[in-house]
Design a protein around this nucleic acid. Structure first.
Length: 433
DNA sequence: TCTGGGGTCCTAGGACCC
DNA sequence: TCTGGGGTCCTAGGACCC
C-alpha cells in the first residue's frame, strides 16, 4: 500500500508563507526571465491560466483580475521542500522523494486508521511549515496518484468528486463499487503515465475514463501501445508493478540550460553563458560524487519565432571521465566552437553531462594522493565549491574567455593536434575572485 | 516585444557478429 | 525463382513526469 503526499500549488504556497496577503487572490510564479507561469494558485487556475502559459498572454489579468506574478525563488522552494519531506516521512516506514513537492510513502506494516493518520500528518505540515497538502492512498503507486488527484479536486471544485474525499482520499477502505465510481469520474488523461499523445489515441479508440482503461486486457494494450501503458492498466487493476525507490539514485545525466532574456547572435556572450552552464553542471556532478565521460553542448533559436531556425548539438568526449570544472568548461567551449554559426538569433543554450559514473575510491585516492597535478586539482575544486557555498554562487568562477580559443597564428595542423579539451589546468587562466 | 528547466524510460532500426 | 537466422549493442527520437 502506498500514499502520495503532494504540496498544493507548491511554489505559490511557499510564497504565501512569507506573504500572507497573497491568500485568496490569483497568484502565479514565473519561470526564468519571467517567461511563463510555472505555478498557479487556485484562483489563477480559475481564471483559465494554463501551466507553462507565456506571461505576455496572461499579463492582462494583472489589471482585470488583480493577478500577482512573482519571479521564482528556487532556493526558497528547495528549503521548504526539505522541511515538508521530513514531516511527510512520519506517515510510514519508507519514503521516496519523487519531486520537489511530492513523496510516496510505503505503508506496509502501518496499523490503525490510515485516513486519520494522514490527516494528522497533513495538519502538522500545514502548522509547522505552512504548506497545504493533499494525500492519496491506494494499493499501487498509480492508484495513490489518482487518489491524490481526487483529494485535490474534491477540495477545489465542488461536484466533481464526493466531498468526503477532499484533502485525504483512501481508496483502500472503499467498496469496489465506490472505487469504480471514482475511476469512472476520472478522465484518462489525468492518470499518471498517460500524457497528451497517448490520451488522445485512447479517446479516439473510445477509452475516455480511468475505469474504461482499467477494464482493458493488459496484453492487448501492450501490443497496441507499449509496456508502459500496459503497466498503467495493471496498476489500475490493483497489481503493483512499480516499487518504491527508497534510496535516492545518483543522476544518470546532469544538465544546465537556460533561455536567454534577449536573442544572442555573437560568440563571446554565448561562450560566457556556456562556461557558466558547464561550471554549474560540474558543481552538481561533484555534489553527487560522480565523474562524467561526455559533455554535450547545444544552441538553438526560438521555435516560437518566424526567424531562420538553427538547432545544433555536439557531444565532446572528455579525455578521461572527471568532474573537473576546467576540463568540462574547456570541452563545452570546444563543442560550442564547432556548432556556433553567426547570423542566427539564438534563444537558448545548454550543457549536459553524460556517461556519468561513480567517482571510484581508486580515482579519488589517485586524485588526492598520487600525482601532484591531480591532487591540487581535486583540492582546488573542493575549495571552489566550499567558497561558493559560503559566499554565494559565482563568488569564484573559472576564467573562460580564452579557453577553447585558438592562439593567434596557429596552423590548422597545430589546432587539430591540440584539442582544447586536452588543455591542462596549468595552462588555463586562473579564476577571478 | 514576450514562450521553463530539469529529468526518466522505452522503442525501433541499424551495425555488427557468428 | 530462390537469397539464413539469430543474437547483441548502440543511438536517436519519442513519450512521459514534475
Amino acid at each position: 500500500m502506498f500514499a502520495l503526499i503532494d504540496g498544493n500549488n507548491f511554489y505559490v504556497s511557499c510564497e504565501r508563507v512569507f506573504r500572507p496577503s497573497l491568500e485568496g487572490i490569483p497568484v502565479v510564479v514565473l519561470s526564468n526571465n519571467d517567461g511563463c507561469a510555472i505555478a498557479r494558485s487556485n484562483e489563477a487556475k480559475a481564471l483559465g491560466i494554463k501551466m507553462g502559459q507565456p506571461w505576455h498572454e496572461i499579463r492582462h489579468f494583472e489589471e482585470s483580475a488583480g493577478l500577482v506574478a512573482l519571479s521564482a525563488n528556487f532556493a526558497l522552494y528547495g528549503d521548504m521542500s526539505d522541511r515538508m519531506m521530513s514531516l511527510a516521512a512520519g506517515l510510514g516506514p519508507t519514503q521516496e522523494i519523487y519531486s520537489i513537492d511530492e513523496s510516496f510513502i510505503g505503508l506496509d506494516g502501518v496499523r490503525g486508521d490510515l485516513k486519520a493518520r494522514a490527516l494528522a500528518v497533513r495538519s502538522r505540515i500545514l502548522r509547522w511549515v505552512g504548506i497545504p497538502c493533499c494525500v492519496g492512498i491506494g494499493p499501487t503507486k498509480t492508484l495513490a496518484k489518482m487518489a491524490n488527484h481526487i483529494a485535490k479536486m474534491a477540495e477545489r471544485k465542488s461536484g466533481c468528486y464526493p466531498i468526503e474525499h477532499a484533502q485525504v482520499c483512501d481508496l483502500c477502505t472503499l467498496a469496489r463499487s465506490q472505487v469504480e465510481e471514482l475511476l469512472a469520474a476520472t478522465d484518462v488523461g489525468e492518470l499518471w503515465g498517460i500524457g497528451p499523445r497517448i490520451g488522445k489515441q485512447l479517446r479516439a479508440g473510445g477509452i475516455a475514463t480511468a475505469l474504461q482503461l482499467a477494464r482493458l486486457d493488459p496484453a492487448t494494450v501492450r501490443s497496441r501501445f507499449s509496456v508502459v501503458v500496459e503497466r498503467t492498466v495493471r496498476e489500475l487493476q490493483g497489481v503493483a508493478c512499480i516499487g518504491l525507490e527508497d534510496a535516492s539514485q545518483p543522476r544518470q545525466q546532469i544538465a544546465c540550460t537556460r533561455s536567454f532574456g534577449a536573442p544572442v547572435m555573437t560568440y563571446e556572450p554565448l561562450a560566457e553563458a556556456v562556461s557558466e552552464f558547464a561550471s554549474r553542471a560540474a558543481e552538481k556532478l561533484r555534489l553527487q560524487s560522480s565523474h562524467a565521460a561526455d559533455v554535450l553542448v547545444f544552441v538553438r533559436t526560438s521555435p516560437f519565432r518566424q526567424d531562420p531556425q538553427y538547432s545544433r548539438s555536439i557531444i565532446v568526449p572528455l579525455r578521461r571521465p572527471c568532474s573537473d570544472t576546467a576540463a568540462i568548461v574547456a570541452a563545452a567551449l570546444l563543442g560550442l566552437r564547432a556548432i556556433f554559426q553567426p547570423g542566427y538569433q539564438l534563444a537558448k543554450a545548454g550543457v549536459m553531462l553524460m556517461g556519468l559514473q561513480p567517482a571510484s575510491r581508486e580515482q579519488l585516492e589517485l586524485a588526492f594522493d598520487k600525482p601532484y597535478a591531480g591532487r591540487s586539482k581535486a583540492r582546488l575544486m573542493q575549495t571552489l565549491d566550499a567558497v561558493n557555498d559560503r559566499w554565494g554562487r559565482g563568488a569564484i568562477k573559472v576564467g573562460s574567455a580564452k579557453i577553447g580559443q585558438v592562439p593567434r597564428g596557429w596552423s590548422m595542423k597545430q589546432q587539430r593536434r591540440t584539442p582544447a579539451y586536452t588543455t591542462d589546468w596549468a595552462q588555463l587562466p586562473i579564476a577571478r575572485a
